[in-house]
């Protein structure tokens, strides 16, 4: 699914005062592309994602999914939240199948398939509170994928995880992306993650949220976190957040 964001503005109203959140956002996401959006907390990147999902209203401008304006959530668009948001009263397999509208047998079959995809087959009958943070997030990703969405929006899905689990899940998301061919938009504050996963990295500034630059990451660069190219891209992105030279990470070549 392609996404087109045109002249988008978003304001929140607090006590009658308009607070600008997003300012003049323009972005085209190609069919099957993996886009990452990186920015500080409060830059409106999560709000942008919710607007693409149809969960948040648009103040001005428009968002098109496959050429059609977004007015409400659609079944072909999935979302994974920062907090896993598994429903505590449903077993893991029922959570994974939550968005599906089909017969019970089919739902169980699809849920089992996606639990296998994220390596949670043994926990199909567990309650969410019995899962670790990483496992719960896997289950949430399985739920996001179960409806086979053409567009998957990921809102800092690994933010609450430890570094090792995070890297592991990043790899799995890449693998799933290759396998499914879905369009992915991932929001993060982790620059490494943005470079590792994204074909293009959208750098956003805060208050009001604006796009500073869209940086294409050439194939192969993201794969090796230790490479010089990776460090260069990281440095380039860091410059947007740390204007003064001293606080910037230095790389001696």
């Amino acid at each position: 699914m392609s996404v087109a964001i045109r002249n988008l503005n978003k304001r929140f109203f607090v006590d009658g005062n308009a607070i600008p959140v997003l300012n003049n956002i323009n972005l085209e996401v190609r069919q099957g592309e993996f886009i990452t959006i990186v920015g500080q907390s409060g830059c409106g990147k999560s709000t942008l994602l919710k607007m693409i999902a149809g969960l948040e209203s648009i103040t001005e401008g428009e968002i098109l999914r496959n050429g059609k304006p977004v007015t409400a959530p659609g079944t072909d668009c999935g979302m994974v939240f920062q907090d896993h948001r598994l429903l505590p009263w449903l077993r893991v397999k029922r959570n994974v199948g939550f968005g599906l509208r089909c017969s019970k047998a089919e739902r169980e079959h699809i849920a089992a398939q996606h639990l296998q995809l994220v390596g949670l087959s043994d926990f199909a009958n567990a309650w969410p509170h019995q899962l670790s943070g990483g496992m719960a997030q896997r289950a949430a990703i399985a739920r996001g994928l179960a409806t086979n969405p053409a567009l998957l929006l990921l809102d800092e899905p690994f933010g609450a995880l430890d570094a090792l689990t995070r890297i592991q899940l990043q790899r799995e998301v890449l693998r799933i992306w290759h396998a499914s061919g879905a369009t992915m938009v991932l929001v993060t504050h982790d620059i490494d993650e943005a470079i590792f996963l994204g074909e293009r990295v959208v750098v956003m500034s805060a208050r009001p949220g604006e796009i500073s630059e869209v940086i294409p990451i050439p194939p192969g660069v993201g794969a090796d976190r230790g490479s010089l190219d990776f460090a260069r891209y990281k440095d380039r992105i860091l410059k947007y957040f740390f204007a003064d030279e001293k606080s910037r990470e230095e790389y001696n070549i």
């Binding site: 999902a53 959530p73 659609g74 079944t75 999935g78 939240f81 948001r85 429903l87 939550f98």
Partner: peptide
């Protein structure tokens, strides 16, 4: 948060 999930899945 849970209501948002319900809205997401219509």
């Amino acid at each position: 948060n849970f209501l948002e999930v319900a809205r997401l899945y219509r």
